[in-house]
């Protein structure tokens, strides 16, 4: 059910779903709200969602969901214009929120990348980095995940429709994993699980499937901050992987340089191990 009893919007809010460089998986997660999609369609005015509708209306929009990262010169004016047109801008997914997996280019020579993929690299217009939306414009809410959790998106939208400020949980996957009663994969299988430092939201899927979390919801809050003299959780976990699971530095770099590798608390760790 999508309740709108206390909606702050005078009429159905105009919602846009906009895409930059991405795989479409987060937009698909919206369409995967099979049970709620028709109710949602009745509660909001889907003004712009090209993946789903050829009825594409111009802004302004009350709410915009943004998928994908900024990777091309022409993305920059687009995101600035969207920000001007939008009251509440929400990023959906790892690409929009951290730069995504394509931010692995940020550690490489983009010209070499073009040459690896294209016979005529000079035709390709691409920025040397893949960056999060928040590096270019202000963002009101961020939904992490690769892909997002569709229930989190529905929660945020229903909160907004009720006039409630959305609160997106920021604790780590580890807590949910323990609550669900899964056997710890670090302890039982010796796997380098990132659950202790990764943000909740997925429902602890990886350990529930007998494998290690690989950080697709980005870092949990405060994992990189500690009082002076105390190592942050991220660094302590890395030390454990190195000492007890025998990961060598190059494996440590890969572990922390993944789907959200360019977000600072992960990149600090991978850069530190790269210089070892």
């Amino acid at each position: 059910m999508v309740e709108t009893q206390f909606s702050p919007y005078r009429k159905q809010p105009r919602v846009a779903v906009v895409k930059f460089a991405s795989c479409d998986g987060c937009q698909l997660s919206i369409l995967n709200l099979e049970d709620d999609l028709l109710a949602l369609g009745a509660a909001i005015d889907i003004a712009y969602f090209p993946e789903a509708s050829s009825n594409m209306q111009e802004g302004p929009y009350d709410i915009a969901f943004v998928e994908g990262s900024i990777t091309c010169p022409e993305d920059l004016p687009r995101i600035l214009e969207l920000r001007q047109q939008t009251t509440t801008l929400i990023t959906i997914g790892a690409c929009a929120t951290s730069g995504g997996i394509q931010a692995l280019r940020n550690w490489s020579d983009i010209e070499a990348f073009k040459q690896a993929v294209y016979p005529n690299p000079e035709y390709i217009q691409s920025l040397s980095t893949s960056t999060a939306i928040s590096e270019h414009v202000s963002v009101d809410y961020e939904l992490w995940g690769c892909p997002i959790d569709k229930r989190q998106l529905l929660r945020v939208l229903t909160d907004l429709l009720q006039g409630v400020s959305p609160r997106i949980p920021t604790h780590n996957v580890c807590i949910d994993c323990k609550r669900q009663g899964h056997v710890c994969v670090i302890v039982s299988q010796g796997l380098p699980c990132l659950g202790p430092v990764t943000r909740t939201g997925c429902g602890a899927i990886c350990p529930s499937m007998g494998r290690d979390c690989y950080g697709c919801f980005g870092p949990a809050e405060h994992v990189s901050v500690q009082p002076p003299g105390v190592p942050p959780n991220m660094t302590s976990l890395a030390q454990q992987f190195h000492q007890h699971l025998q990961l060598i530095p190059v494996e440590m770099v890969r572990r922390f340089r993944g789907i959200n590798g360019s977000v600072q608390s992960f990149s600090k760790e991978s850069d530190a191990w790269e210089s070892k």
Partner: peptide, 19 residues
């Protein structure tokens, strides 16, 4: 926009490939 998967797969471990 090119995302260069074939390029950044180079140097990753085979066990990471499905993800």
């Amino acid at each position: 926009p090119p995302r260069f998967f074939e390029a950044f797969l180079q140097g990753r471990h085979v066990n990471e490939v499905p993800d």
